[in-house]
Design a protein around this nucleic acid. Structure first.
Lengths: 163, 163
DNA sequence: ACCTACCGGTTGACGTGTCAATGATGCTAA
DNA sequence: TTAGCATCATTGACACGTCAACCGGTAGGT
């Protein structure tokens, strides 16, 4: 729709100065928002957002357990990243790993009671921080717009041709 | 304005399910956009976005040189982070460091010719990637909205009380 | 039976980021 | 003068992410 006429808009190769200024504001602010959330979570619960994502997925799984690669695809991580992270979480006693009986070569990831406790303690302050720093910072219309922008950006990222 | 009546909106402590879904889409997509830009830049020029930020600042400085802490505050980094990064960039020959004549204990950061070349080679593909993945993915109205959202989020992040 | 190819998971190397501690230097006040 | 004290920059320890290599095992084809 926006790309119907390659004459004006599609012909340009580079962003304008205004577009570039908005781009920088946008990417830097969202990155800063992410790190602020990260450090709030860290201070409130000694968990990273990565820890939180893993614990959330395990909490919602039946038996509070999942196969490793299943967990990886559920939270959208590479297997290697998850393996490293699980190693660190295991050292801190948040999860356990054991061989999977049903699937050969599969590894079950189990929530420990310490992990479940940490997750429960982290949830409320984390959601409150999301509300303070994101929801309350925007008007309802802006929240809707943010959702639409995310959808549009995601569609472009997932599009095969543009790489 | 939005916060005038604590009855409906200000009274709630936690985000709604819809708000939370938008939050996740938003933060995950912007993070993915950042990493895609990162890997595009890496592939096109063997520079990271951190390298690019440093080289951009130095290119625009008179004499293609800046004092270290000046550079740090210009691109919004902690001095420690910059010091580590400059060490890696120096190993790759992109910059040089030397004692500053004017300021005692100050360190001048200088662009090398290799650094300037790398920056020149990286600029065009980087800006093109920004256009493809951000500008072209959004309607003009969405770009404006993205700028306003970034401004609102930044204002909240900078507000002292909410921390 | 054997070779190959894939699959699930781990590991190592390295770049990156934060935090806290450490020099090195100049300023200021007892 | 000397005892703090702030400032500029670096360093070390550690968490985190990606990439490529690896390992053990199952499955298919010959």
């Amino acid at each position: 729709m926006t790309e119907a006429t390659p004459g004006r808009r599609g012909g340009r190769q580079l962003p304008t100065a205004d577009e570039l200024r908005i781009w920088r504001d946008f990417i830097e602010t969202t990155a800063a928002l992410g790190s602020r959330l990260e450090s709030r979570l860290q201070g409130d619960s000694s968990l990273s957002t990565g820890d939180y994502a893993v614990l959330l997925a395990l909490s919602e799984a039946q038996g509070e357990a999942m196969r490793s690669s299943e967990l990886a695809s559920h939270i959208g991580w590479e297997r290697s990243r998850l393996s490293h992270h699980l190693g660190r979480m295991e050292r801190r006693g948040l999860i356990r790993r054991q061989e999977c009986a049903t699937v050969p070569r599969g590894a079950q990831v189990l929530l420990t009671t310490a992990g479940a406790d940490a997750f429960r303690g982290a949830t409320f302050p984390h959601l409150r921080a999301i509300r303070e720093l994101f929801v309350d910072a925007l008007t309802p219309e802006q929240i809707v717009a943010a959702g639409e922008i995310a959808t549009a950006l995601k569609a472009r990222l997932d599009a095969p041709r543009t790489q």
